[in-house]
Simulated scan of single mutants.
Amino acid sequence: MATSSTPPCPAPTSPTCFVDDLLSAEEKAARDSVARFMDAEVLPITGRHFRDGAFPAD
């Protein structure tokens, strides 16, 4: 349940509700690192590969 310092969860039954509260600083750093990689390396080529029906080999 939300405390006064925690904003209310938009979907309390969501499996990601308050997940940050369960992660250590190291786990949050790993998650953020993966998110940066996905934004920089994967997302820019996703549309082209989807459109071409291809899967990148590298």
Rank of each mutant, 00 (worst) to 15 (best):
D39T: 12
A54F: 00
P44N: 05
S4Y: 12
S4G: 03
D58T: 09
E27A: 12
A2Y: 09
L23E: 10
A40T: 12
G47H: 11
R51Y: 15
E27C: 05
R31E: 13
T3Q: 07
L22C: 08
A40L: 08
T6P: 00
A2M: 04
T13K: 11
A30P: 00
A25N: 09
H49T: 06
L23H: 07
M1K: 13
A2R: 15
E27I: 05
L43F: 11
D21V: 03
H49R: 08
F37P: 00
F55L: 11
A57E: 10
L23P: 00
P12N: 02
S33Q: 12
R36Y: 08
A35T: 10
E27G: 06
F37Q: 02
K28N: 05
G53C: 03
A35W: 04
R48K: 13
K28F: 02
T16Y: 15
L22F: 14
F55Y: 09
L22H: 14
V19G: 01
A11H: 10
V19I: 15
L22N: 12
L23Y: 08
E26D: 14
F50R: 14
M38N: 06
F50V: 15
R48I: 06
D39M: 07
D52M: 14
R51H: 14
A11Q: 09
P10C: 03
P10T: 08
G47F: 07
I45K: 07
L23F: 05
A57H: 13
L43Q: 10
P56T: 03
F37D: 03
A57P: 06
V42H: 02
V34K: 11
D52V: 01
D21C: 09
V42T: 02
A29Y: 05
G47P: 00
A29S: 12
D58Y: 11
A29I: 03
S4N: 14
P10D: 06
T6G: 02
L22M: 12
T16W: 08
E27W: 05
A2L: 04
A29L: 11
D58N: 15
F18G: 06
L23G: 00
D21H: 12
S33V: 01
S24P: 04
T13W: 08
R31K: 15
E27P: 01
P10H: 10
A11W: 10
E41R: 15
F18C: 15
T6W: 13
A57S: 12
D39C: 02
F37K: 04
A29K: 14
P15K: 08
L43V: 12
L23C: 03
V34S: 01
S14M: 03
L22A: 15
P56V: 01
F37Y: 10
E27Y: 01
S5H: 11
